Simulated assay, not measured.
Amino acid sequence: MTLAQLGAEVIRVDPVGGGSDHLRWPLAPGGSSLYWSSLNKGKRSVAVDMRSDEGRELVTALIAAPGSDRGVLIDNVVGRRWMANEALTQHRSDLVHVRVQGYPDGRPAVDYTVNAEVGIPQITGPEEGGTPVNHVLPAWDLVTGLSVSTAVLAALHDRMRSGDGAFVEIALADVALAGVANLGWLSESADRGQGRLRHGNHVYGSFGVDFACADGERVMVVALTEGQWTALKSVTGTGAVFDALEASLAADLTLEAERYRLRETIAAVLRPWFVARQGKQVRDELDAARVLWGRYQGMADVVAAHEDGAHPVLETLEVENGDTLISGRSPMRWDGEHGNAGEPVILGQDTEEVLADVLGLGQEQIGRLRSRGVIDGP
């Protein structure tokens, strides 16, 4: 999807009838998968029976099609000898081949399983909790997808200079391990001989926590820098209180570590200011003081804001069965513009056109393939 939104012609090859994600939740009222439709927008969709010899030959031909802007494959295949890199490079030696895996040894994994294994659920949730709390955002899937895009672009850049292809393997488990290691979390655990404790909604290592307003609205307030801390004290009128607190506890709250150590005390001092004000007043005053903050919202609030034109990165698209889809444009703004999100597709809708354009097959050949069930499409 990322590559398609950057202008690449992306051909997605699915089995006839669709893969396991073709009807994955959430579903639209008409039955189409909002998940599948959104992630595959902007691609050309081809449906091929890859269990048949003819189907495998077609897919191999698409992979190895000639041209300086072709010969690029992204897959997550395990155990298909005909799609092994050494088999495919027999057909195109400069193939750029990026393979996504669960584990480096080829065993399966998904975001939720690798996330559990790197310890994130053990530090997520309320302080008093004892059981793991799964993170609902599949962050490692998102990072892996962007890593794939980076690998493709780097390998293409090298091919343009050297003429050489590349075989790049990216394991979801490695993405997760590298992610938590690069944040310093594994080193921290090794140094302390134990994992980090849960901190609820507190920001680890600095000051940040949620506050309730008089009308029940909640805001997340963060003070990472000395300037942000000064702004927060100023708007809440608590400077004198914190000066006295510093003197009595021999603390220096200009330091992140000190604000973190005294986070509960700081929150207790600030809480009455928020509780005494309606949400709008809190928001207006925090903005005026340049405090770093965010409002807790439901996704219905985000939808309403989008419908009012508040989020240019979002786009409403029409999909099959009369359903609509709110999807994302590329977050990259080129000369101030996001670009289009990409047109939604129907499974297999481009099969015949791709076989004609890329492989030069005639209508009679395509018709025979369709009649034998080797290809499919609407």
Rank of each mutant, 00 (worst) to 15 (best):
V221P: 13
N115C: 14
I63H: 01
V180G: 02
L39M: 14
G279D: 03
D94E: 08
T225D: 11
G336R: 15
H306T: 06
R99E: 00
D141F: 11
T265C: 10
H22G: 03
L156R: 15
S33Y: 06
V72M: 06
V77D: 10
V46F: 06
R192A: 14
L153E: 13
G30E: 07
Q101F: 06
A155P: 12
S206T: 15
E258W: 02
E9C: 15
W25E: 15
P312N: 02
K233I: 05
V358H: 08
V98R: 11
V96T: 02
G239D: 13
L34E: 06
D284H: 00
W25T: 13
D210N: 13
D164S: 13
P15T: 09
M160N: 08
S33D: 11
W82K: 00
Y204L: 13
L286N: 04
G279P: 05
L249A: 09
G342R: 10
G309T: 00
W140V: 10
L27R: 08
A87C: 10
L286H: 01
V275W: 03
L197S: 11
G195Y: 06
E54F: 10
L186V: 11
L224C: 03
A251N: 02
G17C: 11
G227C: 04
G322A: 10
T89K: 09
D174H: 00
E57H: 07
G298Y: 04
G179C: 05
E9V: 13
D323V: 03
Y35E: 12
V282A: 01
L142W: 12
V152I: 14
G130Y: 10
P344T: 13
G193L: 06
I170L: 14
G328P: 00
W25N: 14
Y35M: 12
R12Y: 07
G195E: 07
Q101M: 13
L183N: 07
G294K: 06
T2A: 15
K233S: 08
M160W: 12
S147Q: 09
L314Q: 02
G328L: 15
V354H: 03
T236R: 10
A173T: 01
A28F: 09
S38H: 09
P312D: 02
P126G: 08
V133G: 04
L325W: 14
G298F: 11
L88C: 05
P66Q: 11
G200V: 09
D191P: 02
R368C: 05
V180K: 01
D75V: 00
R51H: 02
P108E: 05
D141L: 08
A300I: 10
R198I: 00
G239C: 09
V96D: 10
P104C: 03
D21W: 09
A276K: 07
V136L: 15
V46L: 04
V10P: 09
P331R: 14
A267C: 06
G130P: 03
S20G: 07
R372E: 14
R295H: 05
D69F: 03
A231T: 01
A178C: 10
A28C: 11
